[in-house]
């Protein structure tokens, strides 16, 4: 697995407690080896996942964000993943305009019994993030960058149509 041979990247996972967190547990119980980049944040339901948590992670410098919930119709809270699906799909579609590579965010459904599927999802997603490499930082990395940016800003480049 290439992910283990090179430097780890920062991947944040948001998982619902009842299905996907359980699925990740099942993968652990089955000793299904996975890349170690992912750090999982447990939430009660995918309906609790504010798309802004994902944006916050990405703007803070996460290289990838993976969200997983119960399969549609199987939500422990009946409707949470239906709302989540709408919110997450919209975020996924919106990211390109911000200049954040939309491939760095993914959402999927994994049930508590799908340990192998979880292993597959984590492995594939980690692989994808490693192919994309570290995410470019939104903030300047050095004082030189800052000054260059300040200069640009002073020149007041706006929207193309504002001249």
């Amino acid at each position: 697995m290439p992910a283990q041979d090179i430097r780890e990247l920062r991947i944040v996972g948001f998982l619902c407690n009842w299905c996907s967190y359980g699925g990740a547990d099942t993968a652990g119980v089955g000793r299904f080896t996975q890349p170690t980049d992912l750090r999982i944040i447990r939430v009660p339901c995918s309906g609790r996942i504010d798309p802004l948590f994902i944006v916050r992670s990405l703007l803070n410098g996460a290289d990838g964000v993976l969200v997983s919930g119960c399969h549609p119709r199987d939500c422990h809270y009946a409707e949470g993943n239906f709302y989540a699906r709408r919110r997450l799909e919209l975020l996924k579609r919106f990211l390109p305009v911000t200049g954040i590579d939309a491939r760095r965010f993914e959402y999927t459904w994994v049930s508590a019994s799908e340990g192998q599927r979880w292993q597959h999802v984590v492995t594939e997603f980690t692989h994808r993030i490693h192919e994309l490499g570290p995410a470019p930082s939104f903030n300047p990395m050095s004082e030189v960058d800052w000054n260059a940016l300040a200069l640009q800003a002073a020149q007041g480049q706006g929207c193309p149509c504002h001249g």
């Binding site: 305009v97 300040a150 193309p160």
Partner: peptide, 26 residues
């Protein structure tokens, strides 16, 4: 649809990121 919108959307991720970095620094 507006030409400026279409032009912007056609840019690469890196160009868009640089654009927002600059505008947001203002």
């Amino acid at each position: 649809s507006l030409a400026c919108q279409e032009e912007f959307e056609a840019k690469s991720d890196a160009e868009k990121l640089a654009f927002w970095q600059e505008t947001m620094s203002r």
